[in-house]
């Protein structure tokens, strides 16, 4: 399979005003800092990490939907989309669509469901009215909504149904890539399962590529083909599904996985919970070495001196940590000694 999306050295900075002494001064917050990855066609790359780590910003930059200063390259089917303007951008927007977390606020309350779904067709394509109607009818069926629901307004739907409307809207332009930013976080578990099954079915049917952001690692494990773990704007680990969950290498990834509460009593007994104390550092005042050093249970003096680079340990597994040796995690080394 070929790389559909190829991200090189993507950096996003926001101008912010910071109070310091008597005067507020203009400074930059680097929300996404020099990240690179590729996603193959038809696959799902999950992005995980704590709140504020830059997941949404990275994904929105890839959809050209972010207001910050962006540098680097985002190649979609081999073509850099960051310099595009006007007509070319329209074409690109058809290929990259977004599903948002909150099915309540992301739909215009004054529009009927069918108009919400066809909105991207109106603004991005020059299809005829009958063509658009035909597409909307098909989409309603594809996402499991009934034809008579086309005329209803968002408040007349449940949360799960609203998310189906959002999905139908994202599908309307036959996109290549769909960015799913916490698409099920606002939903109850039963409805979450309905939506996750739908997303996977649609992916198989239409060969969709997903960038899937979620803080729920169980959901990520179920949905992903590979995972990028972000911490303070950096990718700290990026691996295929099996490697990431079975052989995590970065101390932060291990802490994240061990923090998930488990229903399995055997798992709970065996779990060596790695508690990482405190909070992440101030994004406007990042340390010069490893950004995780202040919370890392195995931080060494060198970690505070220089930032680790994201290096490949196998062809499908990259990690940014000074203490990873070969394919051995520093925490495993610690508990063995």
């Amino acid at each position: 399979m070929t790389d559909l999306l190829d991200v090189h050295n993507l950096t996003v900075r926001f101008g912010v005003r910071r109070k310091g002494g008597m005067f507020a001064r203009q400074t930059y917050l680097t929300a996404v800092d020099d990240i690179s990855f590729t996603v193959r066609k038809g696959e799902t790359l999950a992005i995980v990490g704590e709140s504020g780590s830059g997941k949404t910003t990275a994904a929105l930059a890839i959809a050209r939907l972010v207001s910050g200063v962006t540098s680097g390259k985002v190649e979609l089917e081999g073509r850099d989309i960051l310099p595009l303007d006007r007509d070319d951008l329209k074409d690109m927007r058809q290929k990259v669509q977004v599903i948002f977390q909150d099915p309540y606020s992301s739909l215009n309350p004054r529009k009927r469901a069918e108009d919400i779904v066809r909105e991207p067709l109106d603004s991005l394509t020059d299809k005829s009215d009958p063509e658009k109607r035909e597409i909307v009818d098909q989409l309603f069926k594809a996402v499991g909504l009934r034809p008579e629901q086309k005329r209803l307004f968002p408040h007349q739907f449940s949360g799960g149904q609203r998310q189906r409307i959002g999905i139908a809207r994202a599908l309307s332009t036959q996109p290549e890539v769909i960015i799913c930013d916490e698409p099920v976080s606002a939903l109850d578990v039963a409805v979450q399962a309905q939506i996750l099954n739908l997303l996977r079915r649609l992916q198989a049917e239409y060969g969709l590529t997903y960038l899937f952001i979620s803080h729920d690692l169980g959901v990520v494990q179920h949905m992903c083909d590979s995972v990028a773990v972000m911490y303070m704007g950096k990718i700290v680990e990026h691996a295929d599904r099996m490697s990431l969950f079975n052989k995590p290498l970065h101390p932060y990834t291990e802490a994240l996985l061990s923090a998930v509460p488990s229903v399995d009593p055997r798992l709970r007994e065996n779990a060596r919970r790695i508690l990482i104390p405190g909070d992440p550092p101030d994004p406007l005042n990042l340390p010069k070495g490893c950004r995780f050093a202040s919370r890392c249970p195995v931080a060494a003096p060198e970690c505070r001196e220089s930032a680790p680079s994201l290096d490949a340990v196998t062809p499908s597994h990259r990690v940014a940590c000074h203490l990873v040796e070969g394919e051995t995690s520093p925490l495993a080394t610690l508990s063995a000694s």
């Binding site: 979450q192 996750l196 099954n197 179920h222 399995d264 065996n270």
Partner: peptide, 18 residues
Amino acid sequence: CVPHIMANLTEERHDLTE
């Protein structure tokens, strides 16, 4: 209906129970 995180993950994946 919940995809619980698994200790020894396998390649196998099923639809979630709805």
